[in-house]
Write a protein that binds this DNA or RNA. Structure first.
Ligand SMILES: [Zn+2]
Ligand SMILES: [Zn+2]
Ligand SMILES: [Zn+2]
Ligand SMILES: [Zn+2]
Lengths: 164, 164
DNA sequence: GCTAGACCTTGTAGCGACTACAGGGTCAAG
DNA sequence: CTTGACCCTGTAGTCGCTACAAGGTCTAGC
């Protein structure tokens, strides 16, 4: 099958497929004499796995690790679980942050009658004036490993070269 | 004051300030004979406005519009309100999306005992196997203008040149 | 006056995960 | 053999910064 057919079969655009190949998330497929990529059913399976993982919000690196773990069928699946649970935990932080923003914005929006002039708009005043803790201070996470994981995120990650 | 002092006064890094100048969010300041940027109190006010808006999650373009609205003191503030309320609405969508992801992931994580081998891990199975609607279908928003606003987001936006 | 060192300058590239071209080549049907 | 749908590579754009490198400026102390 061609790249277009693979795209149809998986719901992933052709340009994204080529991108995945470039970053070595998909292996290089065979080619026709004219240079067209030729895909096989195992590519469909792998790409579907990738798409579903991405739809769940997992990062490309997490997907990469899941794929590598999945190929080692005898290994314990603890690391798989941890990847997923860490991602849930990250989501919790993200959701909480957005909810805080939302309520700060709601307070702001409620303070304006909406019918006045810009010169008397409470929204603009609040943005212009001195600190009143628009968003509250952020409390730190109770979870054990959270700080550690977040710190290790900062670690410089070995970069891959393009065109190996 | 120099760029470093402005950064201290507003809590914005010097490189970010230069970036804001490049994208014309901050006006070009005066310079010393040696080429150093020289800022005045009105820059501090403007940059504080920008920082607070950004902390609330408003996009650079929204901040740009707020700043331009704020300068027209006799104009009605309806547009200001709408910007903020639209942003709240966007946040609601984002939060809802993340919560859906979260519960899909939670179901996935719960299905794994965690002590087994990769070969029998339910998480990997679910990612590998055929569709079972990992994330549910997304219902459309009841809000009137939501679809319209989202469509106009797709409109090609006139791009600004660098180095005008 | 001279030097050390803190600060500043420009320009460029990187992040994540794509997406959108341009300018050409290939393939199958009619 | 022509048409037109598909494919190829390579590059640049998205967003909002952030991190350099290589050099210039300013100020305080001697
Ligand atoms: Zn108002
Ligand atoms: Zn945490
Ligand atoms: Zn498992
Ligand atoms: Zn909506």
């Amino acid at each position: 099958m061609t790249i277009g057919a693979l795209g149809q079969a998986t719901g992933v655009g052709a340009e994204t497929i080529r991108y995945y190949e470039r970053i070595e998330l998909l292996p290089q497929p065979a080619r026709t004499s004219g240079g067209y990529r030729v895909y096989r059913p195992e590519h469909v399976r792998r790409l579907n796995f990738i798409r579903r993982s991405r739809e769940l919000g997992l990062s490309i690196d997490a997907v990469r690790e899941l794929l590598s773990l999945a190929s080692d069928r005898l290994r314990p699946c603890a690391r798989v679980d941890r990847l997923v649970r860490d991602h849930i935990h990250d989501l919790d932080h993200k959701i909480e942050g957005l909810q805080k923003l939302r309520s700060a914005l709601q307070r702001l929006a409620d303070s304006c009658r909406g019918g006045g002039r810009v010169s008397e708009c409470r929204i603009l005043e609040a943005l212009q004036e001195a600190e009143e803790a628009l968003a509250g201070p952020d409390v730190e996470c109770a979870e054990e490993d959270c700080a550690g994981r977040r710190a290790s995120d900062k670690q410089p990650k070995p970069r891959r070269e393009r065109r190996a």
